[in-house]
């Protein structure tokens, strides 16, 4: 038999040879667990099968592998409102998840990896609800020029993961509230998000739910590969018993991954108080203060702060720890330092 030519294989006809499939659905809404399951499937999945994993998270901001949380989102607001901040292992930009957002993950062996085909499966599933959607050049899926789905990828040798979001009925106000347009005073290495106008799918199909859409995607997945299988329902407690999975779970929760993996960045700040001007140029590496250039008029307000900050976490806890260690210069200076600290916490 002759090989099918590359061109005809890329035309996504359903005439290609059937391939074995596997479908998993997470019952958990814990973002760390859901991403740990994904990580486990990525490393220990069955690459002789086309694999689809479906999941959704309680309110969470998920940033890309090489992003700066302080540039991409309102870290303080997330802390205040108990919203998770999670770093994923794929590339791309920051997204907001809640139960109105569903996630899909396609795992393929490199020889059969085809992100266009995956997007086509999603678009075909949306057709079940009379929604006409199509991917753009960034492989975002759009309906009437509004983004309803964004994708990102992780590749390692033969292992390929293409995952994405689907806005069904996400709280779009929260999405806007927690994701920054990019803090202009932070100059960061790494990857900046591309902002796009978004819309919920429920705007086009009011009755649409997570279950209905996951069902349709599963059906289309079976149809495209010419094979069916039972859907594996993943139980939270059972999953945590898998050693490699629980290790990934713990790693995803660590400060060292969520913040410590931040590419190096600089933040320049200046403010004139009633008593004088303060200029601070913060350099951060691995989520910690690395080098701090601070000057104030009068100088005793910030004298010694630079070296005290070095190595501390780039957040209000690290800042107040350093402030407390500063030499006592009397009550006026202490009061001014307090004002500087409050200002920095606001700005950082």
């Amino acid at each position: 038999m002759r090989q099918i030519s590359p061109l005809s294989r890329r035309s996504f006809t359903t005439t290609s040879a059937p391939q074995p499939v596997r479908v998993l659905l997470s019952k958990s809404t814990d973002p760390y667990l859901n991403l740990a399951i994904e990580d486990w499937l990525f490393h220990h999945g069955q690459y002789d099968k086309q694999t689809l994993y479906l999941w959704r998270n309680e309110p969470t901001v998920v940033i890309g592998r090489n992003q700066n949380p302080w540039k991409e989102c309102d870290v303080k607001a997330l802390e205040r409102d108990s919203i998770h901040l999670v770093r994923r292992s794929s590339g791309g930009g920051a997204v907001y998840h809640d139960l109105g957002n569903s996630c899909f993950s396609f795992f393929s062996d490199k020889s059969s990896y085809d992100k266009n085909k995956n997007s086509l499966i999603i678009c075909d599933a949306l057709r079940h609800f009379n929604i006409t959607a199509s991917p753009n050049t960034r492989n975002d899926i759009l309906v009437n020029d509004r983004k309803i789905s964004g994708s990102a990828y992780r590749l390692s040798g033969k292992r390929c993961l293409h995952h994405g979001t689907l806005l069904i009925s996400t709280h779009l106000h929260n999405l806007q509230k927690y994701l920054y347009v990019g803090n202009p005073y932070i100059k960061s290495a790494g990857v900046a998000s591309v902002r796009s106008p978004v819309q919920n799918l429920s705007h086009y199909a009011p009755m649409l739910t997570h279950d209905l859409l996951m069902n349709a995607i599963t059906k289309e997945f079976f149809h495209h590969y010419g094979h069916r299988c039972g859907v594996e329902l993943l139980d939270e407690e059972e999953m945590k018993k898998i050693p490699q999975l629980s290790e990934a779970y713990e790693n995803l929760r660590k400060w060292g991954w969520r913040f410590g993996e931040t590419p190096s960045f600089e933040h320049k700040l200046q403010y004139t108080f009633l008593w004088g001007t303060v200029s601070i140029h913060l350099h951060s590496e691995e989520g910690r203060f690395k080098k701090v250039e601070a000057s104030s008029e009068p100088p005793e307000v910030l004298e010694g702060l630079s070296s005290l900050l070095e190595g501390k976490a780039y957040d209000r806890h690290g800042l107040s720890e350093a402030m407390e260690m500063m030499e006592d210069r009397g009550s006026t200076v202490t009061q001014r330092r307090r004002e500087v600290e409050e200002w920095l916490v606001r700005e950082m």
Binding site: S90, R138, S151
Partner: peptide, 16 residues
């Protein structure tokens, strides 16, 4: 071993 991670077009790729 994975030594480097390269990001391109929303993809994080491992370099061994």
């Amino acid at each position: 071993d994975v030594a480097v991670s390269v990001e391109s077009v929303k993809a994080a790729s491992d370099v061994y």
